[in-house]
Every structure is written in C-alpha cells, then in structure tokens.
Amino acid sequence: MNQSNTQLAQDTELENQTAQLIIDTLNLELEIIDIDPEDYLFGEGLSLDSIDALELAMAITQTFGFQLRSDDSKNREIFRSLRTLAQHIANNKTI
C-alpha cells in the first residue's frame, strides 16, 4: 500500500469512528453507512442543533482529548459535514 492509500484508510477509519461517536452520543437511529460523509450535519442533512453540538463537543473532548472552540470563522466549516469534522479531529486529537 503506498502512502496516500494508507492516509486514505486512516481517514476512512476516523470518519467511521466519528460517525459512530455521533450516533452513540446523540442516540440516533442510524448506521454508519446511513451518514454520507459529505452531508450537512446541521440544517438539512442530519439536522443537528446547538444542544447536539454541545453534546458532541463533550464527547469529542472525552474521546479525543482536545477542546473545541468556536472563536474563529472555521467553526462553521468544522461542523459542516462528517468529513470536515473527522479532519478537524485528525488534526487536533491527542488521544
């Protein structure tokens, strides 16, 4: 497996792990396969709301060992989709 393939496999694994975290934390009646990685998490798509965001933030801190922040304009981008959230976790996780 070349390097980019390894990277891809890691990304997918983290995406799946993040999807499972969302499903477990928010008690959603979904399977990982039901969440399109590009689908919106808020608004259309999964239609999560601000309470969900706080719950997710707690779960992410407990699972991946870093704190989410909303001070920069990137926040909307981070929570846009499963893929962007997983990417943010990949860049920041300490556990």
Binding site: S50, A53, L54, A57, T61, Q67, L68, R69, S70, D71
Partner: peptide, 12 residues
C-alpha cells in the same frame, strides 16, 4: 461582548 458557546470558548 462575546457569546461563548463551547466550554473552551468560555475559558478563553
């Protein structure tokens, strides 16, 4: 002026 949302925002 801020309306912090995540715990870390409040800390900051």
């Amino acid at each position: 002026s801020n309306k912090p949302f995540f715990p870390q925002d409040i800390t900051q």
